[in-house]
Amino acid sequence: MRTDAAHRLRAVGGALALLWALGGPSDAQASPQERFAAGHAAALTGDAAGAAAHFVAAAEAGGRDPAVYHALGNALYRAKQPGRAAAAWRRGLRLAPRDADLGANLERVRAASADKLDPPSGPSGAIFWAGLLSVRELALAGGLGLSAALGLLLWAQLRRRPAGLAPVGLGLVGAVLLGSAFVIDDQQDTVFVVVPEVVARSALGPDGVELFSLHEAAELAVVERSGDSVLVRLPDARKGWLPASAVLSTAPSAPFPLAEAPAGPQPASSGL
């Protein structure tokens, strides 16, 4: 009986190994790490658009990493798409707010933008630690605080001793940190203009009046989304509707659609 089971297990294992050896990992099954490496390989050959596609695939396969968005921004910058590059770098900055290189690259594109706009303000001032820690770090610190509080309670129950105020304090700190991660993730809803020029209108539909025009790489705060349009707000409180296809979200978990056709000739790569 036992011999039969072992024999069956070995047979299944052998069949799986054979399948893996014959087919190998297909492109659809490639890991984010492999796609990230493929993107760098494409960038080395000067194929910036191909590299960008690999980096987007890496992010959408679960590799929403600051390094991936940094490389994606660099590839799009080489492909003469500053708006999308800025959006990728902003996504990277939201995942790693202390990354000075990402900030320098983003500042470079912003300085070259035709619209001199202050970046949209971040989360409310009560969350003063928003720029110090990433949402991942906040969530993990919050989870750690909650688990420490619950662990202390469990220990006190097992030992039949009073737990004191430590679990309450730890639990409060953990809950605040975890909650702030969600608030920050929700409040940082900004977009970058990814087309050369777009006109903001006062209303959806044909009755909307043209209010102001924006240019590529302008960063705007999102007030509302409705179908194929986005209501954005300028730093001076002016608002206007833009087509959603003209902007790209800076939320790291949002899809990152690439331009259908590369804009302009691609220069020789100088590496990422």
Binding site: G62, G63, A139, A181, L272
Partner: peptide, 20 residues
């Protein structure tokens, strides 16, 4: 020029969804 991106890093999901 723009600052280069790191290449030798282990890529993982660093978003809030990945940390949950």
């Amino acid at each position: 020029d723009i600052l280069p991106a790191p290449t030798q890093v282990a890529v993982s999901d660093q978003s809030l969804r990945g940390a949950l």
